Simulated scan of single mutants.
Amino acid sequence: MPSETLHLAVVEVTRHRPHAPRYDAYVQTMVARVLGDAARGGWTTDRVAAGELGVDALLASTARADAVVVLGGEDISPRFYGASGGYPSEGPHHAVADEAQIALVRRSLETRTPLLGVCRGHQIMSVALGGTLEQHLDDEAGLHRTAGVPADLSMADHLVAIDPASRLAGVLGTRVVVRSSHHQAIGRPGAGLRVVARAADGAIEAVEHVEAPITGVQWHPEDPGADRAQLPALLARLRLEALSAGRASRAA
């Protein structure tokens, strides 16, 4: 285990979903995977639910974090990216979590705090910086998810091409099989974000900020069926970025 311990805030939408027990149990499994891999990588972790805290409390509770992971969950409310509801397969929204996570992303950019966004977290990064979403991807192709089944059965494995010049390629390589379950994707990337990976249908699969240590992936490296090496590799990269940011801060 690395000798220097850093603090990681693991941010989710909500801690419990009693209205959807099967989905809730599945989410708990994925969050536990992030917490476990982070601990093995030398992090201390706080699990934080944005929807239970709101903007001020979320910012306060994560103020001392060396890095942040924003996880997946419900559809982002369309009002945050200038769109309307009523789209196909529209899921529930959690506007309190949306607003709080958007504020967290903006602060991470201002403070250059390393951040990794996963699925919805990747999308909220873009929305926070003025980007838009593709509100519904074609379910029939089955590329990004298996539609019409419970969430824990909906994951689809597919190939993603990663820009060789990206930071992400240095972590995962330029062609990687990923595991995903989503019906939305980034449309127009937010300010400062560069597209660094796409699926076979052209959907945006990963973005990086051109200046800050902020990265988003559309897939789920924390899923139990995902490549077991992906999540530890992404967390190790986040750790290097946090160490670098800490050194820069101490030198300033």
Rank of each mutant, 00 (worst) to 15 (best):
R15N: 02
Y87D: 03
D46K: 05
G72Q: 06
V210Q: 11
P232S: 12
R17G: 00
R107G: 02
Y26F: 14
P221I: 11
R194S: 12
P150E: 01
R112W: 00
H122D: 01
P232Y: 14
G192K: 10
H158G: 07
L240G: 14
Q28I: 00
D75V: 04
L35A: 13
D227L: 09
P224V: 00
L133T: 04
R15W: 11
P92Q: 15
L240N: 13
A25C: 03
G41N: 09
T113L: 00
L8G: 04
A169P: 06
L53W: 09
A197C: 12
P88I: 10
L35Y: 02
T215A: 01
P114Q: 06
L238Y: 07
D46L: 08
P224W: 04
A32K: 09
G117S: 09
E99N: 07
G246W: 02
A252C: 07
L231M: 09
Q230H: 15
V171T: 14
T62W: 08
L172E: 07
V217N: 10
S249R: 15
S244H: 14
L243I: 00
A25I: 04
L59C: 13
W219D: 02
A199W: 06
R145G: 00
T29S: 13
R22A: 11
R17T: 08
F80R: 13
A252V: 10
T14G: 10
A103G: 06
L133A: 01
G117T: 05
S3L: 12
P221V: 12
D201Q: 04
R237L: 08
A60I: 03
A60V: 09
G41T: 07
T29V: 14
P232K: 15
L8I: 04
G86P: 14
A236S: 15
V55G: 04
L193W: 02
S77N: 13
G41Q: 07
E208K: 14
G246Q: 05
Q28S: 14
I102T: 02
A156K: 13
V177W: 09
M30I: 11
D46Y: 02
L143C: 06
L168Q: 05
G131S: 05
E140P: 00
R228C: 02
S249F: 00
A226W: 06
T146F: 01
S154L: 01
T111N: 05
V68R: 02
V96L: 04
Y23Q: 15
T111E: 14
E140G: 14
A229M: 13
Q135D: 10
V68Q: 00
H93R: 15
T62N: 11
E90F: 07
P78W: 12
Q230R: 13
L58C: 07
A151I: 08
A229C: 12
R188N: 05
A97Y: 11
D138Y: 12
S154C: 01
I124R: 10
H158S: 12
L234C: 13
D163G: 04
A161E: 15
G51F: 03
R194N: 10
A252N: 11
R112E: 10
S77H: 15
E110I: 07
S108R: 03
R250Q: 05
G51K: 02
P189A: 02
G54D: 08
R167V: 01
L172C: 05
V48E: 03
V10F: 08
G117D: 03
S61G: 11
V149P: 06
H122Q: 03
